[in-house]
Amino acid sequence: MKCAIITGGSRGIGKAVCIKLAEETDYHILITYQSNDAAANETLDEIKALGKTGEILKFDVANSTETKSVLESWQENNPEATVEVIVNNAGITRDGLFMWMQEEDWNSVINTSLNGFFNVTNFFIQKMLRNKYGRIINMVSVSGLKGTAGQTNYSAAKGAVIGATKALAQEVAKRNITVNAVAPGFIRTDMTSQINEQELKSMIPANRFGEAEEVADLVAFLASKKSSYITGEIININGGIYS
């Protein structure tokens, strides 16, 4: 059984990626999530409605012990299963000006994006190298490239994942494993629901927010065999707001 794992797969961009990979591939979809049982089950139901298979795995990617424990138990129950695609999508924001930022708001954002990338990818990487095939796609952000005021923690976390993407890509390329990052701008999801879209869209050359499905299309391409000569890249998908 060949699998694709999508962290933070129950909502937003993660959910769109789960659905898109189910539509376009034969992968068994592993949806990881931290808290929202109803949303995770809804995503799984949509995958099943497409006639495809999947399952939900509940753990906090920032917690290395919990991540390892859930993934080990899954692997033991599915000894024949191979994860070929990893989409490190889980991320949180705790916005605020740096001068007033609490240590917890710094740590939780860094731990989810950066340590989450390590905990999940590191678990599967040796098997990927032995199988000589893999697609690793990291969800970053325009904030990680240009920095965003009020998001020093998030910009730092995503900037760090960008560096890790470029380094890991060089380590594993000989084994037919690609490592790329996707950097969305303003995408219409729960995470951006508090932002005034009318006010901001005038700053965006495309004059609109992006849709989660548009990001999922890009991820699906990077997860496919068609993208085999693209690695170590950070691909912007932001309507022209930054390049």
Rank of each mutant, 00 (worst) to 15 (best):
A4Y: 06
I6Y: 03
R11W: 04
G12P: 07
I13G: 02
G14F: 01
K15R: 11
A16F: 07
C18L: 02
I19P: 06
I19E: 03
K20T: 10
L21F: 05
E23H: 01
E24I: 01
L30Q: 01
T32V: 05
Y33I: 04
Y33G: 08
A38W: 13
A39T: 09
E46R: 13
I47L: 04
I47K: 03
K48C: 15
K48R: 15
A49C: 07
G51N: 10
K52S: 04
K52M: 05
T53Q: 14
T53V: 11
T53N: 14
L57Y: 13
L57P: 12
D60E: 14
N63E: 11
V70A: 01
E72I: 08
S73E: 15
W74R: 02
W74P: 14
Q75I: 10
Q75G: 08
N77Q: 15
N77R: 15
N77P: 05
T82Q: 14
E84W: 09
E84I: 02
E84D: 14
E84Y: 12
V85Q: 03
V85T: 05
V85P: 05
N88D: 02
A90K: 04
A90P: 00
A90N: 09
I92K: 08
T93N: 03
R94G: 09
R94W: 05
R94C: 03
R94D: 14
D95P: 00
D95S: 10
L97V: 14
F98Q: 13
F98D: 12
M99W: 13
M99S: 15
Q102S: 14
E104A: 12
W106M: 02
V109A: 06
V109M: 08
N111T: 13
S113L: 03
N115F: 15
N122D: 12
F123G: 09
I125R: 03
M128F: 07
Y133D: 12
Y133R: 09
G134A: 00
G134N: 01
M139G: 01
V140W: 00
V142P: 09
S143N: 06
T148S: 13
G150T: 02
G150E: 02
N153I: 08
S155Q: 03
A160N: 07
G163L: 04
A164K: 04
T165C: 00
T165M: 00
A167Q: 12
A167V: 14
A169I: 05
A173G: 13
R175Y: 13
A183R: 11
G185H: 02
I187K: 01
I187Y: 01
T189F: 05
M191K: 11
M191C: 06
T192Y: 00
Q194C: 10
N196H: 10
Q198C: 01
E199W: 12
L200I: 06
P205W: 00
P205M: 00
R208H: 09
F209N: 06
E213Y: 12
E213G: 11
E214S: 00
V215P: 01
A216K: 01
A216V: 13
D217Y: 12
K225I: 09
S227D: 10
S228G: 09
T231F: 08
G232C: 04
I234G: 07
I234F: 14
I235T: 07
I235F: 07
N236D: 15
I237F: 08
I237R: 06
N238S: 14
S243C: 15
S243V: 14
